Computed example of a mutant assay.
Amino acid sequence: MAQALNSDIRQWYPVCTLPRAEKKAYQALINKGLQAYLPLHRQQKQWSDRKKWVEEPLIKSYLFVNINELEKTEVLMTKGISRFIYFSNKIANMPERQINDLKLLLASSIELEITQEDLQPGEKVTIKAGALKGLMGEIIAYRSQKQLALRLDNLGCSIIVNVAAALIDRL
């Protein structure tokens, strides 16, 4: 009985894809009927003869799946998926709130920057106005500017957002 209850619980998991295979892996998961999320952002690319706006994965070689225990094997058997992300010898999962925060960030017109640096935690804050109202994060020093870092704990990276100091409250 406990096994049946466990198989109904869905959680978000970050998965690693093969290099430059994020979109194909995402589509393969969707074709299998699995719930997946691939955060994309638009950026302008420069070629020798032209410029073009393209949608690129926000975090290279990552996408997210919302699955139960029984679907983990199906995810690993999907073309383009490399592995689950592990922390402390177990598969890392993410709270629904972090996925929703990521979606909110991408829906806003704020310029994002991804860094793989190991950012040290600072003062906890919440945004009190604007498109990102209600989001929580940490203040960090980055390139000598005060910025709000929304740390996605289970990814090993941070999302940096420029926010005016007047728009944040200390927690």
Rank of each mutant, 00 (worst) to 15 (best):
Q46I: 15
F87N: 11
K133Q: 11
L38V: 10
K45D: 09
L105F: 01
L105T: 00
L76M: 09
L119T: 01
E111T: 15
I140S: 03
L38E: 10
L112D: 01
Q43N: 12
A107N: 14
E96N: 15
E74R: 11
K133Y: 06
D49T: 14
A129M: 13
K90H: 02
Q98Y: 09
L70E: 12
N68I: 05
M77R: 15
V54W: 12
V54C: 13
A107W: 00
D101C: 08
N93F: 14
T126A: 07
I160S: 00
N66M: 08
D101R: 05
M94K: 11
M77H: 09
D153I: 12
A92V: 10
M77L: 15
T115H: 01
E71N: 10
V163K: 11
E113W: 01
S144D: 08
K60M: 01
R83V: 05
T126G: 06
G134H: 02
N162T: 07
L148K: 04
E96G: 13
E117S: 04
A92E: 10
L148H: 03
L104D: 02
V65G: 13
Q120C: 15
D153V: 04
I139L: 15
S48T: 14
I110M: 08
K146S: 07
V54A: 14
K60D: 02
E55V: 02
R42A: 08
T73R: 14
L155G: 13
Q116I: 07
K72T: 07
S48P: 05
W47N: 03
S48E: 12
I114T: 02
R97N: 10
L132D: 15
S109A: 07
K79M: 03
I91H: 08
D153S: 11
T73G: 04
K72C: 13
N68Y: 01
R42G: 05
E138C: 07
L63Q: 08
L38P: 05
K124Y: 08
K128V: 12
P121M: 09
N66V: 09
E111Q: 15
I59L: 11
K51V: 10
F87L: 15
E55F: 13
E111D: 13
K52M: 10
P95W: 01
N68R: 03
L104C: 15
I140R: 13
S61M: 05
V163S: 03
M136F: 06
L58Q: 03
T78D: 00
L70G: 06
Q145G: 00
L102A: 01
I81T: 04
G134R: 06
W53M: 08
L132P: 06
E55I: 04
N154S: 04
E69N: 09
E138P: 00
Q147S: 04
A92Y: 05
S88G: 02
F87A: 09
S108M: 01
H41V: 03
N162H: 08
Q46G: 06
C157F: 09
D153A: 08
I139D: 00
N93T: 14
D101G: 06
V161W: 02
N68L: 11
D153F: 05
R151N: 11
K79P: 01
I114D: 00
G134C: 06
P95Y: 09
V163E: 06
A92K: 04
R42P: 06
T73H: 08
Q43P: 05
R143I: 00
S108A: 04
R50M: 09
R50F: 04
K60F: 03
R83F: 13
T126C: 08
T115N: 00
L105W: 00
D118K: 14
P39T: 02
M136A: 12
E69Q: 10
P57N: 02
L38R: 02
E96L: 14
